[in-house]
């Protein structure tokens, strides 16, 4: 078990280094001079050259990459050109908001998604099943920004129940959580349903019934744990992608999270900020996959006891 986890962690290290390198190179290829962006127009070319030299932007690629990696190991991700603050500080200010959004919407997704999937599987092919699956399909298909605006209009503007944007109090967190959670709950519900239906066809389910267990115990004890293996993987990956920034939701609701940080970095050609926030998001995804694999081994003894 420990060996399995250590192994999985070791495997991710080269992946992370490769991703840092790719992101770094991609941003070097992008056209546009960051110094010009930083200094606005009508600046003397001599000044631009001097600052470029000062910031070490004329150094060879490998030197700059080395410097970037070295800084990263020390927790220094450079300075934002535009916001004039350390990138580390910017990310650390934005991340808590993203974490809050991710946790609340994941909770909504799980609390709605898993029971919906189970009920649908038990009541397979009934009106209830079709209705629930219809709702999850709507959740999957609706564009997040549209659902967000719909809720803002109804709950915020018409009924005045919840604040329309901002992210300072718990009441601010409700609407974004519902919007993102509903979207994710759809795929969780559908996967839970199909996985549980598949599991219920297994011989060991017949054994559990032959033992005299009541149907609810058969489904919840013997069916559910087996059927959760793919669902947990999906949940962990969804959670990781939420943590890496829900760009649209954050923009619509004005939440100062990682997603918004990236959007502003892109629109303002703020290279150090963009580079580091992309690397940060990618690392979250990789860690999410790692956690999914480890959770998987808790559910499946075949992996655990190897």
């Amino acid at each position: 078990m420990v060996k399995y986890i250590v192994n999985r962690i070791l495997v991710t290290i080269p992946i992370i280094i490769a991703i840092i390198l790719i992101v770094f190179l991609l941003l070097q290829v992008l056209p546009g001079n960051p110094i010009q962006v930083m200094m606005k127009e009508k600046v003397n070319q001599a000044v631009i050259d001097r600052v470029t030299e000062q910031m070490g932007l004329n150094d060879p690629l490998m030197v700059r990459f080395g410097r970037y990696l070295w800084g990263m190991l020390h927790g220094d991700l450079g300075h934002s050109y535009k916001l004039k603050r350390p990138v580390t500080q910017l990310i650390m200010t934005a991340f808590p908001n993203t974490v809050k959004l991710a946790i609340t919407s994941a909770l909504v997704a799980w609390i709605i998604g898993i029971p919906t999937g189970i009920i649908s599987a038990i009541k397979k092919d009934t009106l209830l099943d079709r209705t629930l699956m219809g709702f999850s399909l709507v959740g999957i298909s609706l564009p997040v920004f549209w659902a967000a605006m719909l809720l803002q209009y109804i709950l915020g503007y018409k009924l005045k129940l919840l604040p329309i944007s901002g992210y300072s109090t718990i009441r601010h967190m409700i609407m974004p959580a519902i919007v993102l959670g509903w979207a994710s709950s759809g795929s969780i519900a559908r996967l839970t349903r199909s996985s549980l239906l598949g599991v219920m066809k297994n011989d060991y389910i017949r054994t559990a019934r032959a033992k005299g267990l009541v149907e609810s115990a058969v489904v919840l004890r013997h069916g559910l744990k087996n059927s959760m293996i793919p669902v947990v993987t999906m949940m962990a990956m969804q959670f990781a992608s939420l943590l890496s920034g829900a760009v649209i939701t954050e923009s619509v609701f004005g939440i100062g999270g990682i997603g918004q940080l990236m959007v502003s970095a892109i629109s303002q050609r703020d290279m150090p900020l963009l580079q580091s926030s992309v690397v940060f998001s990618t690392m979250i995804i990789i860690i999410g996959n790692l956690v999914a694999d480890i959770l998987y081994s808790f559910l499946d003894p075949k992996i655990r006891t190897q």
């Binding site: 297994n202 060991y204 054994t207 019934r209 032959a210 005299g212 499946d300 075949k302």
Partner: peptide, 21 residues
Amino acid sequence: VRGNEISMIFQEPMTSLNPVF
């Protein structure tokens, strides 16, 4: 009655036990 007064064993021992318990 099931499992108590009448019990049953099946053809497929490889798949008749729950793999996660």
